[in-house]
Computed example of a mutant assay.
Amino acid sequence: MIAPLLELHDLQAGYRDVPIIRGVSLSVEAGRIICVIGPNGAGKSTVLKATMGLLRIFGGDVKFAGEVITNVATEKHVDMGIGYVPQVANVFASLTVRENLALSVRQRKQQTVALEEVLALFPELKPKLGAAAGALSGGERQMLAFARCLILKPRLLLLDEPTAALSPLLVGNVFKKIAEIAALGTAILLVEQNALRALEISDRAVVLSNGENAAEGTGAELLANSRIKDLYLGGHGASPAAPREPARAASY
């Protein structure tokens, strides 16, 4: 059995003194995609921000690679190998694509990967290196946000609503890239409103309601659960997920 890379145990966190999540527990292994779904206001994004050290944790623990990192500074999370792609403001619009990527590695001590290796994963960015990030399409900006994180070679990637406001075609492209990144050995904790598509690519999922675990299981189990579909997926079914590649050692 693979040891978890990230473990959240009874996590309680919020803004100022107001708790938003009230006891969330989950784990993520290398090369696996764990999805967090639930209604608006359930605390999904708060889970990511607390994990990344952006919010004060009131109770519970965050463990990464067996080490407790509860309330450790965000920059330490980055140095340990945790990457975070927020939903908005995830690229510098006035800088070029090349400058965005170069800025990610500046003054960082951890191992990085060559620009060519990242562009091999995101070939659509190669002809855009000299373009301003603000001139990119929505899908291209999301690819750049992923690339900015991956150039730091994270072991864990936290993704907050990566398909928000994208067209159906671009949504499919983003989910395909997420699966490719996981297949390279990166652990992924994904928060996503497009629950049907997210569950199709996820190894496991946690459903949040009112800041707490309401249900969990494999993506396939939750897609087949009529109660979950009625409460959280709008009662719609989903096509069976295509099998993902087994995890390999990271090489991007």
Rank of each mutant, 00 (worst) to 15 (best):
E7I: 04
A198H: 00
L95E: 06
A102W: 04
V118Q: 05
L190A: 04
Q193G: 00
A73L: 10
V118I: 14
A215C: 13
A214W: 02
G41A: 09
G139D: 00
L129V: 11
L8K: 06
I57T: 05
Q107W: 06
R227C: 08
S167I: 02
F146K: 05
V105F: 02
V191E: 03
N213H: 07
E117N: 14
G211K: 05
E67Q: 09
A147I: 05
R56C: 07
Q110G: 15
Q110Y: 07
L55P: 06
L48M: 06
E67H: 08
E116T: 11
G53L: 01
R32V: 05
P243E: 13
A102R: 03
A147P: 11
A145W: 03
G83W: 08
G59L: 03
Y15V: 10
A205I: 00
A135S: 15
E245F: 05
V36M: 07
E221L: 05
A42P: 04
G38P: 00
A214V: 08
K109E: 15
A165R: 03
L159K: 00
L8D: 14
S137G: 09
V88E: 15
E245P: 02
Y15W: 12
G23Y: 10
R148V: 00
L158T: 09
M1L: 10
D230C: 02
G219S: 06
E117M: 10
L144F: 06
A247P: 11
V207Y: 12
L95V: 05
I37E: 07
A215I: 08
S202Y: 04
S239R: 14
L157P: 00
V174L: 05
R22C: 14
I181Y: 00
S27D: 14
Q12I: 12
A133I: 00
A131Q: 15
I181D: 01
E216R: 02
Y15C: 11
L144I: 12
P39H: 11
A205V: 09
L199G: 03
A50R: 10
A93T: 15
L95G: 08
G234V: 13
E117Q: 15
F122Y: 09
A65D: 15
V88C: 09
V68D: 15
I2L: 13
G134I: 03
E140P: 05
R244Y: 02
Q193W: 01
G237D: 13
K176Q: 14
L121K: 02
R16T: 09
L158F: 07
A250E: 08
G138L: 02
G23S: 02
A102M: 11
T96G: 14
Q110N: 14
K49H: 12
Q87T: 12
A164L: 13
R56S: 10
A238T: 03
Q12D: 12
A13R: 03
N100R: 06
K49Q: 14
G81Y: 09
L157N: 01
S137Y: 09
R244K: 12
R204Y: 09
R227Y: 11
P123R: 04
M1G: 14
D203A: 08
L189N: 04
S25W: 09
E99K: 10
A89E: 15
T46H: 15
N71I: 12
S45K: 06
T74R: 06
L55N: 05
Y232H: 12
L208V: 04
G185Q: 01
P86V: 10
T74C: 04
N225R: 08
N40G: 00
